[in-house]
Simulated scan of single mutants.
Amino acid sequence: MYLARGFSDDPGIWLWTIGALALYVLITYGLTYRARARRGSAQPARDAVHDLKDREDPQPLDQRFVSRVIMLCGAGITGLVAALTSGVVRTLAVGLTIGVAATAWAYYDHRTARRASAQR
């Protein structure tokens, strides 16, 4: 039985996707924790968790667009790397690409969140 063209029945793709999103959350938490600790928070871990879930202020449209472009380019590059490699090299290359893309995305969101809160 064929599924829609371009969609794989491989559960590994879902694991890679969930892993990339988990990596983004972990990196965002780490950056927020570091910022809270530098500012002298009494409980930086708890404050960083609250910052993760308190995202009521939406990003301005231009910052949101750049954030989504970073996310989509990272996904595109990851897909290209996966298509061009195979075997163990694929696993290592895709893992490295996901790490770099998620780090860039989380760092950009962290930097723009600080600027947006400082402007208010």
Rank of each mutant, 00 (worst) to 15 (best):
G87R: 09
A22D: 14
A102F: 07
G40N: 09
G40L: 06
F7V: 04
W14F: 15
R90P: 04
T91E: 11
A48Y: 01
G95R: 05
A102K: 09
L26F: 11
A83Y: 10
R38L: 15
A118D: 10
L72D: 09
A20V: 04
A4T: 08
L21W: 11
T112R: 00
R115I: 06
G12A: 10
A93M: 05
T97M: 02
V81W: 00
Q119C: 08
A93W: 11
A113R: 02
A104M: 12
D109M: 02
A116K: 14
H110D: 14
L72T: 12
A82H: 05
T112V: 10
L72I: 10
T17H: 14
I98A: 01
D9N: 15
R46E: 02
D51I: 01
S67C: 09
V100A: 11
E56A: 14
R68F: 01
A116Y: 08
R90V: 06
M71T: 03
Q63W: 15
K53Y: 05
A104C: 11
F7K: 11
Q63R: 14
H50V: 03
L21H: 08
V25S: 07
A82L: 01
L80R: 15
R114W: 05
A116L: 11
I27M: 06
R115N: 03
R36G: 00
W16F: 12
G19F: 00
G30A: 10
R115Q: 07
H50A: 09
S41H: 03
L15I: 06
I18E: 10
G76E: 01
V89I: 08
Q119R: 13
R111P: 01
T97Q: 06
L52D: 03
I18V: 14
A48M: 01
Y24K: 01
G87I: 11
P11S: 08
S117M: 07
T78N: 06
R64W: 12
R46G: 03
R46Q: 02
Q59M: 13
A20L: 01
A113Q: 10
G76H: 09
K53E: 04
M71I: 00
A101V: 14
E56Q: 12
A116R: 15
A82S: 00
M71D: 10
